[in-house]
Amino acid sequence: MNTPQERPFVDVRNLRITFTGGKKPVEAVNGVDLKVKRGEVVALIGESGSGKSVTLRSLLRLHPAARTRIEGEMRVGDQDVLQLSTRELADYRGKVASMIFQEPLLALDPVYSVGAQIVESIRRHEKVSAAEAQQRALQLFERVRIPSPERRLQAYPHEMSGGMRQRAMIALALANRPQLLLADEPTTALDATVQIQILLLLRELQRELGLSVIFVTHDIGAAVEVADRIAVMYAGRIVEEGPAATLLRAPRHPYTLALLKSRADGALAKGTRLETISGSPPDLTALPQGCAFAARCKMAQPACEASRPDVTWLEAGHSVRCLRVADTLVPSPV
């Protein structure tokens, strides 16, 4: 039995999330198990619609309760996330777990200065004066390397560049010293140079503060840069999970391999044609009986369409859901 010291800081078991507001229920997440240790960075990767952001947002209970059915277990530290009351949830958000949203221009309030929003967040969770909170906000801006921090605290979101807004979003997420940082594709809307700067900043802050981080991205290259472990999601399930170096060197699920082959920096550098994944992800209102990737998989056999594969453990920390796992010993394309 695990001792309390050995328990993962984030422990998600058999998570199922169904949106019920439309004509048919949408099974957005279908039996996800995810564990994150203290001080560990785990990346969730996959195409749009694979369930990455839905899983991430569920850890803050951000989905509308009236139109969402959540089943399973979610624990963060000693908190049972699904059992938190409205008041407990308000204390949990920001103090225990905090999020960096994909588009800070939408996440930040346009009618208040960025500094005022950080000050409000600090005072919501701690009994400090406005002056103390203002000083903390200034220190946060300095920590995330925003130039002229005193002046930028007075700026409104629209007065900042995309990279500066994302740094301000990181400062806001760290304002109350959370233990878990949730990053929802934080570099998608940024140019390549700024993306690298933000990724390096996140990794530096994570190590400095000892944060547990769940990082959502569709870019496996970005995941490798920041993550200790990678979980590959497809149609609401984790189909492969393991150490970042292992998945880059020896992917064992056909979908993971296809994602690697579709990377421009991996394929074009060798003078080969950039590969694509044919077809489209399945309809989440009518998931297939078997493997959800079978219709797009070059290795699929009739058995793949008949039943969903169980988890196969290849070695410590590396698991895959694939009936053809014995036949996937192929060299990595990168």
Score class of each variant (00 low, 15 high):
87 R>N: 13
88 E>C: 08
89 L>A: 12
93 R>T: 12
93 R>W: 13
94 G>I: 12
94 G>F: 09
95 K>S: 13
95 K>V: 05
95 K>E: 10
96 V>Q: 14
97 A>R: 09
97 A>L: 13
97 A>P: 12
97 A>E: 10
98 S>C: 15
99 M>L: 14
99 M>R: 09
99 M>G: 12
100 I>H: 08
100 I>F: 08
100 I>V: 15
101 F>V: 10
102 Q>A: 13
103 E>Y: 10
104 P>I: 03
104 P>H: 06
105 L>G: 11
105 L>T: 15
109 D>Y: 15
109 D>I: 15
110 P>A: 14
112 Y>H: 15
112 Y>N: 15
112 Y>Q: 15
113 S>A: 14
114 V>F: 00
115 G>T: 02
117 Q>W: 02
118 I>E: 00
118 I>L: 00
118 I>P: 00
120 E>N: 09
120 E>Y: 05
120 E>S: 07
121 S>Y: 01
122 I>P: 00
122 I>E: 00
122 I>W: 00
123 R>W: 02
123 R>Q: 11
123 R>E: 05
124 R>S: 09
124 R>E: 07
124 R>C: 06
124 R>D: 03
125 H>E: 03
125 H>V: 03
126 E>V: 04
126 E>F: 08
127 K>P: 02
127 K>Q: 09
128 V>C: 06
128 V>I: 10
128 V>K: 06
128 V>F: 05
129 S>Y: 05
130 A>H: 13
130 A>Q: 12
130 A>M: 07
131 A>Y: 04
131 A>I: 06
131 A>V: 10
132 E>F: 07
132 E>M: 05
134 Q>A: 14
134 Q>L: 10
135 Q>D: 14
136 R>V: 03
137 A>Y: 01
137 A>K: 00
138 L>V: 05
138 L>F: 08
138 L>C: 03
141 F>L: 01
142 E>M: 02
144 V>Q: 03
144 V>K: 02
146 I>E: 02
147 P>S: 11
148 S>N: 14
148 S>D: 13
148 S>M: 11
150 E>W: 10
150 E>M: 10
150 E>F: 08
152 R>E: 02
152 R>D: 03
152 R>Q: 07
152 R>W: 05
153 L>Y: 01
154 Q>A: 13
154 Q>T: 12
154 Q>F: 09
155 A>V: 08
155 A>W: 06
155 A>L: 05
157 P>S: 07
157 P>T: 07
158 H>D: 02
159 E>A: 02
159 E>M: 01
160 M>A: 01
160 M>I: 01
162 G>A: 01
162 G>N: 00
